[in-house]
């Protein structure tokens, strides 16, 4: 029977931490972006949409490669972080978070944007006639109505980050407890022909992903009925 060593368990913990932090940050970033995209009529809206959707079509290695160059000591971002005395981001957990947020951005923005768009102007106008402030309309009307979109965004952003590989491989440097996430740990085990631990981790990941998705979809089904 194959067993997991401490560094494998650390990889599990690190993956959950990365996915959680990324999902939280994405909710904070994606919500205003989605709101703006849903309501703006500016000419450059298409431009912003295209940039947000880029990670959908780019191979993760492209993103990883450019992030490695940009966040490196000679890159624009690297120079900035060094000027702020933060060091450089590659090979750090913070660097992985930045990469993951960019990589999963469309998976968070698009469902929320669709939800805001499907609400339409009408409920917000009605709320306005009842003297609800802009903030109140957003918090009390738009957010609850958009709940299914948020749920989808959370599921997708979390799952996508757990399944992320190319960006992490290019940026991470495979450091135990810092950047060695599950997908990289599995890859290393497979390459080193350690199929026992590879099976345990990979099989566990399939099971975990399925259970989380099932749970969220079941819960999502209920809340959809409630909101409609």
């Amino acid at each position: 029977m194959a067993t997991l060593d401490p560094s494998d368990l650390q990889a599990v913990w690190l993956t959950l931490k990365l996915a959680s932090v990324t999902t939280l940050l994405l909710l904070l970033i994606a919500t205003p972006m989605a709101w703006w995209l849903a309501h703006s009529r500016r000419w450059y809206k298409g431009l912003v949409s295209a940039v947000v959707a880029l990670p959908l079509v780019l191979p993760p290695t492209v993103l990883g490669f450019y992030l490695l160059l940009m966040m490196g000591p000679q890159g624009a971002v690297g120079e900035l972080t060094r000027a702020l005395n933060l060091g450089t981001l590659p090979f750090t957990f913070a660097g992985l978070v930045v990469g993951s947020v960019l990589f999963s951005l469309p998976f968070a923005v698009q469902p929320i944007q669709n939800a805001f768009e499907s609400i339409g102007q009408r409920p917000l106008e009605v709320a306005a006639t009842l003297r609800a402030s802009a903030w109140d309309r957003f918090v009390s009307v738009a957010l609850p109505l958009a709940r299914p979109g948020f749920l989808t965004a959370i599921i997708l952003a979390f799952a996508h980050t757990v399944g992320e590989f190319g960006v992490v491989l290019m940026l991470g440097g495979n450091i135990d407890g810092e950047t060695r996430v599950l997908s990289v740990a599995i890859y290393s085990h497979v390459e080193a022909m350690e199929y026992g631990p590879a099976h345990l981790l990979a099989g566990g990941m399939v099971l975990f992903s399925f259970v989380v998705l099932l749970g969220l979809y079941l819960a999502g089904g209920k809340s959809w009925r409630v909101t409609r």
Partner: peptide, 20 residues
């Protein structure tokens, strides 16, 4: 201070880009 590449090209690249 160790970072590891999954092949020797990636290892070289980490240093060539100045990240290591």
């Amino acid at each position: 201070k160790l970072v590891t590449g999954e092949n020797i090209t990636q290892t070289f690249q980490f240093a060539a880009t100045g990240n290591a």
